[in-house]
């Protein structure tokens, strides 16, 4: 187990380094940052001064190593636009995004896993059709449209929930549903497919031949094996939610990382953009690592690989 863990950890670190290199280089693909920073009416001299001031005149590899070294210490530099450190801005916004993501993934899992299990127990039944309908709608509906529909009904027509902001728990209900609903179909269909396959397996027959009641058969013997791919998918989707909440955060004006990313792109605030991408990537990688560990805990065969 320990060996497996170290191996996965090593891979995770390598991936994180690769991502950081790509993130850093991407900034340069969008053009000379000094020119962008100097603005339209800047002279040649202004640009070269800015280039020197921010260190853009050094070789890229040196800039990268310098940036990486500071990033490791939690120093992402200064925001070009806001008068504060990048780290400060990010860690101010991060909890909001994490909270939103956690609410959304919880909503998605609580809805989709039971539905997927029920659909698998009774394939082609009414509940299976109902689950399929939910899945199709979820997959077909763009999240921004769904978010606006929610706002219209719950926020304006019935006035049940606040439309914008992130000051109280009620502000998170609609965004969490809008964000979470999007991943429901995938998780549900995967749960259903996994359960169907596992329920037809020999060891489920063995469990029944032992005289086990339906509930232990279902939850002890079947779900644990069927849930493995769902764990991986959920981790990836959670990572996606942290980064992909840009649209939802913007619609609901939630002061999270996604909203910050959107603002920074508009202001060409390079250090903030770089840092957001890096932070989200690291989260993504950490989640993948955690899901690998959880899977190894659930399935002993993975531990020896």
């Amino acid at each position: 187990m320990l060996q497996y863990m170290l191996k996965r950890l090593g891979v995770a670190v390598l991936v994180a380094l690769t991502v950081s290199l790509i993130t850093f280089s991407m900034i340069y693909l969008s053009g000379d940052p000094a020119i962008a920073l100097a603005g339209e009416s800047a002279t040649e001299e202004d640009i070269s001064n800015i280039r020197k001031f921010y260190g853009y005149d050094r070789p890229i590899i040196i800039q990268y190593l310098d940036w990486l070294w500071r990033a490791l210490q939690g120093d992402f530099g200064q925001s070009h636009y806001l008068k504060s450190s990048v780290a400060g801005v990010i860690f101010e916004r991060l909890p909001t995004t994490m909270l939103l993501g956690a609410c959304a993934i919880s909503f998605a899992l609580i809805l989709s896993i039971p539905l997927g299990v029920l659909a698998a127990i009774r394939p082609n039944s009414l509940i299976d059709r109902f689950a399929l309908t939910i899945a199709v709608i979820g997959q077909a509906m763009p999240s921004f449209w769904f978010a606006l529909t929610l706002m219209l009904w719950f926020g304006i027509t019935w006035r049940l929930l606040p439309i914008t902001g992130s000051s109280s728990w009620a502000n998170f209900v609609m965004p969490a549903i809008a964000l979470g609903y999007y991943v429901t179909p995938g998780v549900m269909r995967l749960t259903r497919a996994g359960m169907l396959e596992v329920l037809a397996s020999d060891y489920i027959r063995t469990a029944r031949a032992k005289g086990l009641r339906p509930m232990p058969v279902l939850f002890k013997h079947a779900l644990r094996n069927a849930i493995l791919p769902v764990v991986s998918l959920a981790a990836v989707q959670f990572g996606f939610m942290l980064g992909g909440s840009i649209v939802i955060e913007t619609i609901f004006a939630i002061n999270g990382l996604g909203f910050l990313a959107w603002e920074s792109i508009q202001r060409a605030d390079l250090p903030v953009m770089q840092a957001i991408v890096l932070v989200l990537s690291v989260f993504y990688i950490a989640l993948t690592f955690l899901s690998d560990m959880l899977n190894a805990f659930l399935d002993p065969r993975i531990r020896v690989r």
Partner: peptide, 18 residues
């Protein structure tokens, strides 16, 4: 499993891997 027990053909897949 109490009065009546069964042994299956496929020992490789008849036990729960988890």
């Amino acid at each position: 499993g109490d009065r009546l027990a069964m042994i299956f053909q496929e020992p490789m897949t008849s036990l729960n891997p988890a």
